[in-house]
Design a protein around this nucleic acid. Sequence first.
DNA 1: GTATGGTTTAACCAAATGGTTAAATGCAAG
DNA 2: CTTGCATTTAACCATTTGGTTAAACCATAC
Lengths: 206, 206
Amino acid sequence: MPTSPDDSTEVRIQKAAKTIFTRKGLAGARMQDIADEAGINKALLHYYYRSKQKLFEMIFEEKLIELFTNLQVILESDLPFDEKIKSFIEKESDLLSEFPSLPIFVLSEAWQNPDYVERLLQTLPIKLIREKFKKLHKEAADGDITHEIPFHQFMINMMSMIIYPIVARPLIMPLFGLDEKDFANLMEQRKSIISKILLENKPKDM
Amino acid sequence: MPTSPDDSTEVRIQKAAKTIFTRKGLAGARMQDIADEAGINKALLHYYYRSKQKLFEMIFEEKLIELFTNLQVILESDLPFDEKIKSFIEKESDLLSEFPSLPIFVLSEAWQNPDYVERLLQTLPIKLIREKFKKLHKEAADGDITHEIPFHQFMINMMSMIIYPIVARPLIMPLFGLDEKDFANLMEQRKSIISKILLENKPKDM
DNA sequence: GTATGGTTTAACCAAATGGTTAAATGCAAG
DNA sequence: CTTGCATTTAACCATTTGGTTAAACCATAC
């Protein structure tokens, strides 16, 4: 999300806010930082966005949705189960490689204000998503051989193996002595590993 | 970590600091909150601990080590590979059930100050741990049949499936419509699921 | 030109916050 | 009793921070 001087001021502010908030969190971010990042001054920042809280909520809601967008796209698609999974792993891994700070941002704010996030999640088409989950689950149970794992657990395994290494990157890299490039390779490798593991351990009836 | 009135003031402060810092992070925590939680006043808090930063670092370093303690214990043990893994899953899951905010706390601060965390990790016996990793890896490669996955990937899979669901709890619970008890059951179930999956996908040569 | 609206400058405000200080109090050990 | 230390009270300070204001500036459109 580079803050290009070509963008309109409003867009520059939004990009800057994303950068600063995802890097520092709500409590850690300073309005001055956002103004600096956007290449404007504080007065103009407040001229566009009345309060820090409102600006933050706008960004946060967008980011929360972003995390689930791929999931929804996959749920909508007509691919067979295995292909749905592979496609999701691919897309979500790529998204996270591009915006690695996305999940830690959403998760740490979710811990600091669980009520707000819960309310937010309820405004999403969450029932719809659950319906599609059920449908997906049925697909998996009907179409194939091995159905060893409860569906929730399957989903959690999938999300864990995709998202956690990104979240834990600042620990994993020094712990394993990896540089940026090593880590990128590791992540690329993971795609096939994850899909292999998951498809050997498909969901069974809940 | 209930703040018992029986504890000495110093211990009360430490417990309070853990509670507040793990809940709010460094930037979000207020010295007044910590004083209140400890049942003392701000003056006395500063009488014991000069600065917020020092107090925070003390807590953070302890928590970072806590996250890796089980790992080290397992690495030291004489159990065969499979038992090492099972035992680690068991112990780490139990630890996290007791202190679920531990990983999100460490991870989000690690993102906000990666240099500090990297320096910290280098003070830990990290080379020792890597040596033991290698030994463990050899054990796995020598002793058994299936060695399909690079060792790093194996470790990452393990940590992911254990830790991520705890980190993502504030999203998982509302998303799946679970209450506290449901979630605890889910976590208990996971122990055997994770060990099954991992032991079907053991490390191969790096 | 002049009116309009985005933008800067710079000063300002109130509240929050980390941290200090000094005096008073309580209390246990010598 | 008194010395010493833990603790409280309460005022205080400097700085940071979110947010406001007013005046000036500057481009573009009419």
